Amino acid sequence: MSTPAGRQSNRARPLAAAVSAALLFAAGCSSEEEGPGEAKGGVPVVEKGKLTTCTHLPYPPFQFERDGKVVGFDVALIDLVAKNLGVEQKILDTPFENFKTGAFLNSGECDLAAAGMTITDERRKNVDFSIPYFDATQAVLASKKSGVRTLAEVKARKLKLGAQAETTGESYAKSQGFDPVAFESSDAVLNGLRTGQVDAVVIDYPVVRGWLKDKANAAAFVLGQNVDTGEVYGFSVKKGNDRLRAAIDKAIRDAKADGTYKKIYEEWIGPLPQAGS
């Protein structure tokens, strides 16, 4: 999710609890297996045999629940890291606002954060980022009945604009003089557009593409202006966790070199751009 801000804020929700509980149960850890450990290459992990990823659900196509399992573009890439380290990925659903501060990394709850997170100088103060793994842009999605396609039209007609809280979409909208309605999740953004709480929204382009695959959404909404904000996504680790960061970088580079990245990109997002990340 793009953002100089990030993605979103708290969201105590049953789904999050259910997903976390299901994943913890699936781990089936005995008392002997609990506690920190070490993966291949001397990479420290907060739980033996696991690479624990903090994310924030839902954020399709990067991470979301399907058939009781968390899947998506980010999930598939981190699975490559886990495989190289000889461990399994374990996913925790956590508030996005903590990703900016590195709270869950510093507390030892997670090894890394993977949440469609834009690399920014402000965030670098609190966490270390992997090399960029995705080039991101923002897009405007509007209800067809509104008749608007650009942010300029939204402003001129004094219509309501929505964005996901704590994201670069929200930050960009504010930088353009808007006071956007802030929704706590991408699902809430779409619902706000669907129910008429807002006339248009600005959010990550891959998210919009995913929404428009649904025929009902394609019939009700129209893709408008594309905004290139120069954003790139990165996975974050605790400050100074150089071994894990290097392992993530290696997995990204190897995947791009051997065609695995292209395959994952096309599975979860669509055709890989010619100058794709």
Rank of each mutant, 00 (worst) to 15 (best):
P61D: 09
G116F: 08
N84H: 15
G116C: 00
E109L: 10
I91H: 12
V87H: 13
A82E: 01
C110N: 05
C110K: 07
Q63A: 14
K100L: 12
A115K: 00
I91Y: 13
F73T: 08
N98P: 02
A136W: 02
K83V: 11
T55E: 09
L80H: 12
Q63K: 03
T120I: 04
N84F: 14
G108L: 08
K69N: 11
F129M: 03
I78K: 06
A82C: 04
G108K: 02
T120G: 07
V81Q: 12
A76L: 04
A103K: 15
I78A: 06
H56T: 15
P95N: 01
D79R: 14
F96Y: 12
K125I: 02
G102L: 01
D93Y: 05
I91R: 14
T94Q: 13
K90I: 07
K83C: 03
K69I: 15
A76T: 02
A103L: 14
G102Q: 08
F129P: 00
F129L: 07
N98G: 15
V75R: 02
V75H: 06
F99N: 03
L105V: 11
D121N: 11
K90H: 15
V87D: 10
T137G: 01
D79N: 13
P58F: 14
E97K: 11
T94W: 02
A139M: 11
A113P: 01
I131A: 08
E65C: 12
N98M: 05
A82T: 00
A113W: 06
F134Y: 14
I78S: 09
A114Q: 00
G108I: 01
G102N: 01
F64G: 04
A113L: 06
L112I: 04
F99D: 09
I91V: 15
S130M: 04
V70C: 10
K83P: 00
L57H: 12
V71G: 08
F129A: 05
M117N: 03
N106I: 04
T137Y: 02
I91G: 03
D79A: 13
A136Q: 08
V75Y: 04
D135F: 09
G86K: 04
K69H: 13
F73N: 06
G68L: 10
E122V: 10
E88S: 15
G102M: 00
A139I: 05
C110T: 11
G86R: 07
D121L: 10
I131E: 05
R124I: 01
E65P: 09
D74Q: 11
Y133H: 06
D79C: 11
A136F: 08
C110I: 05
N106W: 09
F129N: 00
E65D: 09
T118G: 12
Q63I: 03
K100N: 13
N126W: 00
C110A: 14
G72R: 10
D121I: 05
Y59K: 11
H56L: 01
K83I: 12
P132S: 06
L105M: 13
N106C: 02
A115I: 01
V87G: 01
P95V: 09
E109M: 05
